[in-house]
Design a protein around this nucleic acid. Structure first.
Lengths: 193, 193
DNA sequence: GACATATTAGAACATATATTCTAATAAAAG
DNA sequence: CTTTTATTAGAATATATGTTCTAATATGTC
C-alpha cells in the first residue's frame, strides 16, 4: 500500500557515483544528488539515513565491482592476470575507477558507518587479504611479512601507480601500461633465494 | 612604524601544513589555523588574501622541498638515485609527504590561484618535465612519448606506489621498499631494443 | 608627548549545505 | 468510497565556516 515510488535507491546511488566521479566527492551535495534525477531532497533522506550512508553505498558498490573480478583472476591465474586486471577494469569502468583510485574511503565517508555496512566493508578487505596471502604462499612457498609485501607491491601497488596518472587526466590508460606492469611484476616476483 | 608583529607568515603556513598532514585538508579551517598558534582569525586575512592562497603557499613549499632534491639526484646520478629519493624524502619529511602524496592539488586549493603563484607552480612542473625529458634522452638515446612514459613510471610512479601504503597508515616506509623500487627500476629501464 | 599606522583582536556577517519538518499525493486495503 | 500509509514535495532550520568589519594596541616618527 502507499503511493508508488518514482525513484529507487539505485538511482540515488548512481547519481552520487556519477557526480563524485566527475567533480569529486565534495560536489556530492544532497541537493546535487536529488537534482541529478529530479527528485526532492526529502526523498534522499527517505531512503538513506545520511549523506555518509549514501556515500558508503557508493564505495561498497565500487569496491565490490573491482574486487570480485580481481579475486577470481588471482585465484585462477599466475598472478600476472590479477596485476593486469587493474588497467583492464579501469578501462572498462572509468567512473568507478575515478572514485576507487582517486579518493580514500575517509574522503568519501567522513563519519562513522552503520554497523551493518561496516561489516560489509570489513568482509571486502578480509577477502582481499586472504586472497593475497593465499597467493603469496602458493608463489613463494611461504607467506611471511616480506613475501606478502612483495606480492602486494607487484599486483596491487604497481598497477595502481601505472594507471593513476591517466585517471587523473580523465583518460583511459594506454595499452603500454600493461607491458610496464608485466616487466615490474616479473622483476619483483622472481624468487630471490 | 606600527605595532610589532606577534606572528609571521611562516607560522601560519606551518600551522596549516601541520593540520593538513594530521587531519586532512578539510580540517584546515581558518579558525583551526589561527587557534594552532593562538592568533586571531583576522590576522590570517591580514597576511593571506584567502584560505586558498594560504593552502597554495603550503603546496608550493612542500612541492619545492621534494623537487629540489629530486632534480639534483636526477641530474647527477643514473636515475636510480632519483627513484630512491622518494622513499628517503618521505622518511625524512613525514608531514610534507602526507600532503604531497595523499592529496591532489585541487583538494588543497579549490579555487583559482593568483597569477604570481600560478607562475611559481608552473615553474615547478616545467622544471620536472625538463629534468625527466633530459634524463630519458640521456638513458635511451631519444626522448619520444614512450621513452618518457617509461621513465616517469620507473622513477616517479613506482616509488610513489611503494611508499603510499605506509604514508596512509602514518608509518615510515621500511627499508625493503628500496629493494622493490630498485628491482622494478632495473626491469623497466632496461633497453628493450 | 601627540600622531600615524601596522598589527592584533575578535565580533558580526554571509553563505553553503546537511538535516528536519510539515504537507500534499497516490495507490492499496477494506 | 473511505481509510491508511508509503512516498513525493519542498520549505524551514541548524550549523559550520570563510570573509569582512570595527575597535584596540603598540611602536616608530616628528
Amino acid at each position: 500500500m502507499g503511493r508508488n515510488a518514482h525513484f529507487n535507491n539505485e538511482q540515488f546511488i548512481d547519481a552520487a557515483l556519477k557526480i563524485a566521479a566527475a567533480q569529486g566527492p565534495a560536489a556530492v551535495t544532497i541537493a546535487a544528488v536529488a537534482g541529478e534525477i529530479g527528485a526532492p531532497v526529502g526523498s534522499v533522506y527517505h531512503r538513506f539515513l545520511s549523506r555518509d550512508v549514501l556515500m558508503a553505498e557508493v564505495w561498497l558498490r565500487v569496491a565490490a565491482s573491482f574486487q570480485d573480478e580481481f579475486l577470481s583472476a588471482l585465484e585462477k591465474g599466475e598472478g600476472i592476470e590479477a596485476a593486469l586486471h587493474t588497467p583492464r577494469w579501469v578501462r572498462q569502468h572509468s567512473a568507478e575507477a575515478r572514485i576507487l583510485l582517486l579518493y580514500r574511503r575517509e574522503e568519501l565517508v567522513a563519519g562513522s558507518w552503520p554497523e551493518e555496512m561496516k561489516e560489509r566493508a570489513l568482509g571486502i578487505s578480509r577477502r582481499l587479504d586472504a586472497g593475497i596471502t593465499e597467493f603469496a604462499a602458493r608463489t613463494f612457498g611461504k607467506a611471511g611479512r616480506e613475501e606478502i609485501n612483495q606480492t602486494i607491491f607487484a599486483i596491487i601497488d604497481v598497477p595502481y601507480a601505472a594507471v593513476l596518472r591517466y585517471i587523473r587526466q580523465g583518460k583511459k590508460p594506454p595499452r603500454a601500461v600493461e607491458e610496464h606492469i608485466t616487466k615490474a611484476f616479473n622483476a619483483i616476483m622472481r624468487r630471490t633465494k
